[in-house]
Design a protein around this nucleic acid. Sequence first.
DNA 1: ATTGATCACACCTTGC
DNA 2: GCAAGGTGTGATCAAT
Lengths: 81, 81, 81, 81
Amino acid sequence: MDIIGDNAKQQLLSVIERIENREEAKREVQEDIKDIYLEAKGVGYDVAALRSIVRMRREDPAKRAEREAIIETYASAVGLS
Amino acid sequence: MDIIGDNAKQQLLSVIERIENREEAKREVQEDIKDIYLEAKGVGYDVAALRSIVRMRREDPAKRAEREAIIETYASAVGLS
Amino acid sequence: MDIIGDNAKQQLLSVIERIENREEAKREVQEDIKDIYLEAKGVGYDVAALRSIVRMRREDPAKRAEREAIIETYASAVGLS
Amino acid sequence: MDIIGDNAKQQLLSVIERIENREEAKREVQEDIKDIYLEAKGVGYDVAALRSIVRMRREDPAKRAEREAIIETYASAVGLS
DNA sequence: ATTGATCACACCTTGC
DNA sequence: GCAAGGTGTGATCAAT
């Protein structure tokens, strides 16, 4: 008999395989997202700008407004637009 | 009329919403993965070690063996391990 | 005699120690930067906003203006300020 | 008069410039490190393996031994080396 | 003190 | 082949 028994091995394998299953799903979703960006790029969109928009829509509007107000204050002070 | 027409707006919104839809799916899968690790931790597994195992299983065995052989050569030379 | 000779070992050690020497210098500089941010935070600055400003000043002004113009176009189209 | 006074502007600029000064130093050190790796690569070293060695030497030996023991236990259980 | 979240670093893949 | 962007990982910070 080994250091760890067959039951333990099976339990460990089960955990690992469940993770691998979800990681595979994740890779597929990532591929989907990448494809949409590539398709958008193909019809003329700027991918980096699209990513910015998606990020902005994810944020809480109030938090975003506050954050941008502070940045704007600092930016004006140092002559950055 | 605006700089960009209604059709363009609709097309842009469509792209963005398709991305957001897949990002939501991605977040759910990431949550699943995190939950499995937490559950494993709850029954005594070392999460960092689990992550190492999952990473090792992802790699090509031949590549991994070669890489580890080189590291071992260097490690011996400098008295590590 | 080992797989690799004493000369090879010395050469390898020399490479490693030169890297470690510069990594130590890097850690010190990183500590400096962190301290400045912490000090600024202590007198009331918003650290995240400061980081944004520093990043903006790093960028090429022309590139930044162009990028922000595109983002603004998209943002208007989808009703994001 | 602006939202923030000249003193405040000067203080802000001072903070930013101190950060930028250290960031420039950091970039130089990073360049040094990169150059050493490239030079090593030029005389036949495997850069990824070198990085592993440097990382291993940074770690606490006891911690590293413990971590590797756990990984090895899991790896054996699932038939990985 | 431990845990959760945030952030910067390193790695790796992808595009040029 | 290099440069850049994205992802994953490790560290650091705050909060409980």
